[in-house]
Design a protein around this nucleic acid. Structure first.
Lengths: 334, 334
DNA sequence: CCATACAATGGGACCGGTTCCATGAAGGGG
DNA sequence: CCCCTTCATGGAACCGGTCCCATTGTATGG
């Protein structure tokens, strides 16, 4: 069916080994021979079979990405960075979108095998003990992104600091009663980041001598709708917050919606901060914590490829810079 | 390194052929032998090498998806449908995100080869003559999604009808001067859909005996920002439109922004329709044309797999249902 | 009881590359 | 001029599966 290396060898009048040497830019090939082989390759429009190559080399030239909820724009941004960098390095990317616990289990059970892929990038899912064990037993180079495990290389943003700077910004503006709205921490597909951001938030409040009563911490699944409800509930109190820190832009959008439904205006009656700096944040004029999403994918691939090619691992934890983007959703309290 | 079929055969005391038969659920294997082989497989935690399998079978069990601008939520929704369906069928998915003309050329040059993948799904890119030729020469089963070519199987929504029903809705509300804002039609990475929607829009206007002067058609690149500018320009006229049909929700969001900047309120001073029914449309209360994005990915994979497995191709053009979702951004003119 | 058919099985050839080793030719030094 | 090294090269072996064919053993029918 397809053209093989033997066809090229025949046409060029050389052995198969020589064609292989030319293909792989090996030395010890006579320039004239090389030219003949290259001509034959061009003539036949020959491209070596990646499958045969993989089998022979015992390498797949493929990297798998496991990520939950492709629906979230932040996940997509990371994926874009991963895709671009892998493509540039000549690796194939296979994608595993995890939206259920079953899928998560299946993926971690079947995927970490050297005969399937050369490396693994896990986005926003912190491996369980059993998952870690599988990964380590397989010996596959693995990099986590926006996920944590003491014993694995990872690219993360400083979520604690992110929660802190959002809170500090509001405190500096003069707010005293500040609420927090974030994700449920320990569901099977939970993002760990929300919990860390809450931690940073609490720390900043404590440093400023401010209390965070339980009614000012709203936890719910990651949806605009749920965040809107939580905000309305929080505002329906004799001492409502004058500002709310959200664990994501999506949730902040929900809070804006809830405030508007209550006839409150932002930032006059309520200040709101988000997290991620998605396009929507710009759109809504949301003050938010910006993190380099695309770049996190790029770095993860760079580190993974270094490991695959036997380079030094370096420090396991690589922390990326974050910054506060101030827009129209925050102001001093009334 | 890894366990091979020979190890299993040795442990079970059978030949390699027998192990292969057991693995592939062939008949003509003694139940007792099968049990011994299965026990050995379990004992060794053996998983056959996909690479070796691919080489031997001359099938890659892999499908490639080419899609432009992973940033667009509509593209991601389609990808989700594709990923889910392929995973269920046991195929690997490799993703090619196209954001530049160079990448588009590279992808269409290198990818359509039977030794790389078993099939191709092309999203939102209508192949050029040369690209078509490559695809056909490769003999690779291919399905287009949201893209057009007379001679290729495709899953599309009726964009002409979409443009028409958006316009008809506004006409029925009593609008007479209706504008349109959409994408540049013929750039290398352009979406063809915008042009078709404009066509449907024009048809509806003509049927109602309404004119569409050139100043009421704004064409620009696919960004909120650009759409906002176009809208402001359009409104800055002695006879501004009372409604604007947009070729996407993203652009409609820009129009809303532009209107708000001009101090106009929607829908009192201006009605706006979008296209796609993204989450953001719900958020903004946007009247929009809804199309089954996720489902388009599912169907594309189903059709592709049918073709790969030698089933009937059926009608090349499969049209998906669309519908108008009416929200708060449209009302009768003042 | 023997000829025949058929089910179960082992193992060689093959898929298309890479790698290594043996061979021959060319070149350099004494 | 001969010996030894070095370079270019062909081809066998291998990667780990699948498939087909030959062989063996058993059941069936005459």
């Amino acid at each position: 069916m397809g053209i093989t290396i033997a066809d090229v060898a025949r046409l060029a009048g050389v052995g198969r080994g020589t064609v292989s040497r030319v293909l792989n830019d090996r030395t010890n090939v006579d320039p004239a021979t090389r030219a003949r082989v290259l001509a034959a390759i061009r003539e036949l429009d020959f491209v070596p079979s990646p499958t045969a190559r993989r089998l022979s080399l015992q390498r797949t030239q493929t990297v798998a990405v496991i990520l939950p909820f492709l629906t979230r724009p932040s996940a997509v941004e990371r994926l874009r960075g991963i895709e671009l960098t892998l493509a540039a390095a000549g690796y194939d990317l296979i994608v595993f979108n995890v939206e259920t616990v079953d899928r998560r289990e299946a993926v971690f059970r079947d995927l970490p095998r050297p005969e399937r892929v050369d490396g693994l990038i896990v986005v926003s899912l912190s491996p369980h003990a059993s998952e870690l064990e599988r990964i380590q037993r397989s010996g596959l180079p693995t990099v986590l992104v926006d996920a944590h495990h003491r014993s694995l290389p990872r690219v993360v943003a400083d979520d604690v600091r992110g929660g802190r700077i959002a809170a500090e910004h509001l405190i500096k503006l003069g707010h005293r009663r500040i609420g927090f709205i974030g994700d449920i921490p320990r569901t099977p597909l939970a993002f760990t980041s929300s919990r860390l951001r809450l931690g940073g938030f609490r720390r900043a409040m404590a440093s400023a001598g401010l209390e965070v009563p339980a009614r000012l911490v709203g936890i719910g699944d990651h949806s605009r709708h749920r965040a809107s409800d939580l905000a309305r509930q929080m505002m329906d109190d004799r001492l409502p917050p004058t500002a709310i820190v959200c664990a994501s832009d999506t949730q902040a959008a929900g809070v804006l919606e809830g405030a508007s439904a209550l006839g409150m205006s932002v930032p006059a009656d309520l200040s709101v901060t988000g997290y991620d700096d998605l396009e929507l944040a710009d759109h809504l004029g949301l003050t938010t914590v910006s993190q380099p999403l695309f770049e996190s994918g790029v770095r993860a691939v760079q580190r993974l490829l270094t490991t695959i090619e036997g380079g030094p691992v370096g420090a396991l934890r690589e922390v990326q810079d974050i910054s506060l983007v101030i827009r129209r959703s925050t102001a001093p309290p009334a």
